[in-house]
């Protein structure tokens, strides 16, 4: 097991390396840089701009910039913001908890909504309830989360005259305000995710319900609840967990939009702002952190397989 985890982590580092190189080059291929954008209307001469670029190391060739960045990053130095001069690692550390909280909250909500509805659809296969839930979940899959966010915000403010409190508060400082701020973006992210969880849970539970050991459990005289939750659902979890692991990518992408809409100071809004002003070190580092989160979640998913299914544990 430890050997397996180590192997996955080494593999993960390679993935991150490739990813960060890719982003590094893409970012520099986009026209405009931080100096041009910052000093565009200040009347600075091209010579002054070049001097500033040289100071930031932006005059070197892309390859050399990459080598510099990588060698610093490996030593734990993610550089300074080109805009504010603040340490990138510091900025990320203050912003990371917001995104983690948002992501965890969305996943938990998605599971709470998705799994029971999926189980109900499977148990009531082809009934009116099933068809109704199918329409709802396909609707949930089709609605873009930013649209849902805007509708929710507008709806709440028009009907209830309520909008989430402004000015971010952390959960530790003020749990009530924090939850009021977090809940709406989390539910917007959760609805898309839960819709796919519903579909996956439904088909996985249906498949398990048709397997022979379910008949054995019924022949023991077990109550229907035991048959469904203890046996059918438990055996379906592998597929549901796999799905959640894969959907984490979409979820993290969603935080970029939703944090911006709800003015949450997380990594998502950070990357959004930094791309606009071409703050290369921040964009690169944030993408790196997002990538690492995705890889870690999927490693966790693979470890959970073993916990869910003893046959996988053996391998």
């Amino acid at each position: 097991m430890i050997e397996y985890i180590a192997r996955r982590l080494i593999f993960g580092i390679f993935v991150l390396l490739i990813m960060t190189t890719f982003i590094f080059i893409i970012m520099r291929a986009v026209p405009g840089d931080v100096v041009t954008l910052q000093l565009a209307n200040s009347g600075a001469t091209p010579e002054q701009m070049d001097a500033l670029k040289a100071e930031m190391g932006l005059d070197k060739s892309v390859i050399w910039q990459l080598v510099d960045w990588l060698s610093n990053a490996v030593q734990g130095d993610l550089g300074n913001s080109l805009w504010s001069g603040q340490q990138v690692s510091e900025i990320i550390l203050t912003r990371l908890p917001v995104t983690i909280q948002l992501a965890v909250l969305s996943i938990v909500l998605a599971i709470i909504i998705g799994i029971p509805i999926g189980v109900i659809s499977a148990v009531k296969q082809n009934s009116f309830t099933d068809h109704f839930l199918k329409v709802i979940s396909i609707g949930g899959l089709s609605i873009p989360n930013f649209w849902l966010a805007l509708i929710l915000l507008t709806g709440l403010s028009l009907v209830l005259n309520w909008i989430p409190p402004l000015g971010y508060q952390s959960f530790v400082d003020n749990p009530l305000v924090n939850m009021q701020q977090m809940f709406l973006p989390a539910i917007c992210l959760a609805i898309t995710l839960s819709a796919s969880i519903v579909r996956m849970t439904r088909s996985a539970v249906l498949e398990v319900l048709h397997s022979e050991f379910i008949r054995t459990v019924r022949a023991k005289g077990a109550k229907e609840g035991v048959v469904i939750f203890r046996h059918a659902l438990r055996n379906s979890l592998v597929s549901v967990i796999t799905l959640i692991g894969l959907q984490i990518g979409y979820l993290l992408g969603g935080t970029v939009v939703l944090e911006s809409i709800f003015a949450l100071p997380g990594l998502g809004s950070l990357i959004f702002e930094s791309v606009l002003i071409r703050d290369y070190p921040i964009v690169q580092s944030t993408v790196l952190v997002f990538g690492a989160m995705f890889l870690l979640v999927n490693l966790l998913v693979d470890i959970m397989y073993g916990w869910v299914d003893p046959r996988i544990r053996a391998k």
Binding site: F213, T216, A219, V308, P310
Partner: peptide
């Protein structure tokens, strides 16, 4: 009555027990 007074044994022991 199932499992208590009347019990069943099925054909394929490979698929008739819950794997988890």
């Amino acid at each position: 009555i199932r499992g208590n007074e009347i019990a069943m044994i099925f054909q394929d022991p490979m698929t008739c027990l819950d794997p988890v």
